[in-house]
């Protein structure tokens, strides 16, 4: 799992595990300070969904969105497992290393 995919999963979890693209993008931007494009967010979400790490449901369509529905994503148990695994692996590897 790539770094950006981890950021996306963590952002979803931070947002009470139910958020749509705009919120995810803002959360990552606000916390990491790097500029993120919708193209990148949705490409990552698409990849994560194929791996069954996240799932989505459609929300309401409001006029300020030009009548387009929101797509709410949530992290699935497989996604949480994968995150935990990454964290464990990183922890093991970091142990005793200083850079």
């Amino acid at each position: 799992m790539g770094e950006f995919e981890q950021l996306v999963l963590l952002a979803l979890l931070r947002l009470d595990n139910r958020a749509y693209g705009m919120e995810v993008r803002e959360e990552i931007e606000r916390r990491t300070g790097r500029e993120v494009s919708y193209g990148a967010v949705y490409t990552a979400l698409d990849r994560l969904e194929r791996k069954a790490f996240v799932s989505h449901e459609l929300g309401e369509a409001t006029p300020e969105r030009g009548g387009r529905a929101k797509k709410f994503f949530r992290v699935e148990p497989a996604g949480r497992d994968a995150l935990r695994e990454v964290r464990r692996a990183l922890g093991v590897m970091w142990d005793g290393v200083s850079v």
């Binding site: 705009m22 919708y38 949705y42 969105r65 387009r68």
Partner: peptide, 24 residues
């Protein structure tokens, strides 16, 4: 332009998000 760049499956969501944020 954005509409053509985004894969069809994600198009609505991306455009909706972008438009919403644009207005804000």
């Amino acid at each position: 332009m954005l509409a053509r760049l985004v894969p069809p499956a994600q198009r609505d969501a991306v455009l909706g998000d972008a438009e919403e944020e644009f207005r804000r």
